[in-house]
């Protein structure tokens, strides 16, 4: 097992996932969304492209079986599971300026700051953390032109799992958003696991028991 970490509300982590390995993120308390950035470890130019992923899969949402493609249209990871809701993939995360625009409150915790902090050992800049995969998130594009964020569907134990198609760097922010339905107005815990694709995964009971002892 290469990584087994409980992500407290509003926290973040960096992971390296090699070919033959998988990354699983499990919802611990319910209705929580991770914001994920990834790129090929050997070439940061091979970074996640939401648009290439949507158009080459022929799917607006990253459902199981979809490949997450790079900007240069090569496969980075395969979505092996997503047990709740949709797999939103978008050009940006929550940020302090976005939260200020929407709520008039400066300097709020946000995914952009989390992802920059998680990626600091890799020297990332703001432009490096703008291509985001948000499993469990619910976004609606209404016919009247409006753009609406809804409650996520994930319940405790729901998970998303990615298999690495090349060696990857993955940054994960446990989204701190508390003023929209993104995380049901209540940021909560996620669990992140990286290991061989054929290894057994920790169960929710084991994750919760481990958290209680931490």
């Amino acid at each position: 097992m290469r990584q087994d970490v409980l992500l407290e509300p509003r926290s973040y982590t960096a992971s390296e996932v090699e070919v033959g390995e998988s990354l699983r993120i499990t919802v611990v308390d319910g209705q929580q969304v991770p914001d994920i950035v990834l790129w090929a470890r050997e070439d940061a130019g091979e970074r996640l492209s939401p648009t290439a992923s949507q158009l080459l899969n022929g799917s607006h949402l990253m459902v199981p079986g979809c490949v997450l493609y790079s900007h240069r249209a090569s496969g980075l990871a395969r979505v092996d599971a997503c047990t709740a809701g949709a797999g939103v993939i978008v050009g940006g995360s929550c940020s302090a300026p976005l939260n200020y625009a929407r709520f008039g409150i400066p300097d709020t915790p946000n995914c952009r700051s989390n992802l920059l902090a998680a990626g600091a050992p890799y020297g990332v800049e703001e432009a490096d953390v703008q291509h985001i995969y948000c499993p469990f998130m619910t976004i609606r594009r209404d016919d009247d032109g409006s753009y609406v964020i809804d409650l996520p569907e994930a319940e405790p134990g729901d998970y998303v799992e990615l298999a690495a198609l090349v060696d990857l760097v993955v940054l994960t922010s446990n989204c701190p958003q508390e003023r929209t339905p993104t995380n049901a107005f209540n940021p909560s815990r996620l669990h992140l696991w990286v290991g061989p694709s054929d290894a057994s995964r920790p169960t929710l009971d084991a994750i919760v028991a481990e958290a209680a002892h931490a």
């Binding site: 940006g92 940020s95 300026p97 976005l98 625009a101 929407r102 032109g145 409006s146 753009y147 609406v148």
Partner: peptide, 9 residues
């Protein structure tokens, strides 16, 4: 992204 969310469009 910021424009779409700030303008809800």
């Amino acid at each position: 992204l910021l424009t779409g969310l700030a303008e809800e469009a």
